[in-house]
Simulated assay, not measured.
Amino acid sequence: EGRVVGHLALSPVTHESGAEGWFGLGPISAEPALQRQGVGGALIAEARRWLSDQGARGCILTGDPGYYPRHGFLPAPEHAPEAEPAEFFMVLPLAGDIPPGRFRFHPAFGA
């Protein structure tokens, strides 16, 4: 109907190994009246398509471990950035393996 009902952001992230092609997902939101109706899942599916089209190696996030695994994200506490709660950190590999070591979100996310 021509109105915005959700939002998802992707941003480049770094890895201590120097591995490139990784992105962070978040924030993601849906209009409250439309939550639990597939808006978030549709946004994640579109983000996955976009990432694949860009040749991205994968995507990371810190989020609800009860929600994101249904979209392909895997718990990855050993890869969590220093300041993130490891039990909520997840990775979605798209091309190749997850490099050993920790990811880093842009410093702006910690401001």
Rank of each mutant, 00 (worst) to 15 (best):
Glu1Asn: 15
Glu1Tyr: 15
Arg3Ala: 02
Val4Leu: 09
Val4Arg: 08
Val5Trp: 00
Val5Ala: 00
Gly6Arg: 03
Gly6Glu: 11
Ala9Ser: 14
Leu10Ala: 04
Pro12His: 02
Pro12Phe: 00
Val13Tyr: 00
His15Trp: 06
Ser17Leu: 11
Ser17Ile: 07
Gly18Pro: 08
Glu20Cys: 12
Phe23Trp: 15
Gly24Thr: 03
Leu25Tyr: 03
Gly26Thr: 05
Ile28Gln: 05
Ser29Gly: 15
Ser29Cys: 14
Ser29Asn: 09
Ser29Tyr: 03
Ala30Phe: 13
Pro32Asn: 06
Pro32Asp: 12
Pro32Glu: 14
Leu34Trp: 06
Leu34Ala: 07
Gln35Glu: 15
Arg36Gln: 10
Gly38Arg: 05
Gly38Phe: 08
Val39Ser: 10
Gly40Arg: 00
Gly40Leu: 02
Gly40Ser: 10
Gly41Asp: 09
Ala42Lys: 13
Leu43His: 09
Leu43Asp: 08
Ala45Gly: 15
Ala45Lys: 15
Ala47Ser: 06
Arg48Gln: 15
Arg48Met: 05
Arg48Pro: 04
Arg49Leu: 14
Ser52Trp: 00
Ser52Asn: 10
Asp53Gln: 12
Asp53Lys: 08
Gln54Asn: 07
Gly55Cys: 08
Ala56Lys: 04
Ala56Val: 06
Ala56Trp: 05
Ala56Met: 05
Gly58Met: 14
Ile60Pro: 11
Pro65Cys: 08
Gly66His: 11
Tyr67Ser: 08
Tyr67Arg: 01
Tyr67Asn: 07
Tyr68Ala: 06
Tyr68Thr: 09
Pro69Cys: 00
Pro69Val: 03
Pro69Tyr: 00
Arg70Lys: 08
Arg70His: 09
His71Glu: 04
Gly72Phe: 02
Gly72Thr: 06
Gly72Tyr: 04
Leu74Met: 02
Pro75Lys: 03
Pro77Cys: 02
Glu78Ile: 14
His79Met: 09
His79Glu: 11
Ala80Asn: 03
Ala80Gln: 04
Ala80Phe: 03
Glu84Arg: 10
Phe88Gly: 07
Phe88Trp: 11
Met90Cys: 01
Asp97Lys: 14
Ile98Asp: 06
Pro100Leu: 01
Gly101Asn: 03
Arg102Pro: 03
Phe105Leu: 05
His106Pro: 05
His106Asp: 14
Pro107Ser: 08
Ala108His: 09
Gly110Pro: 10
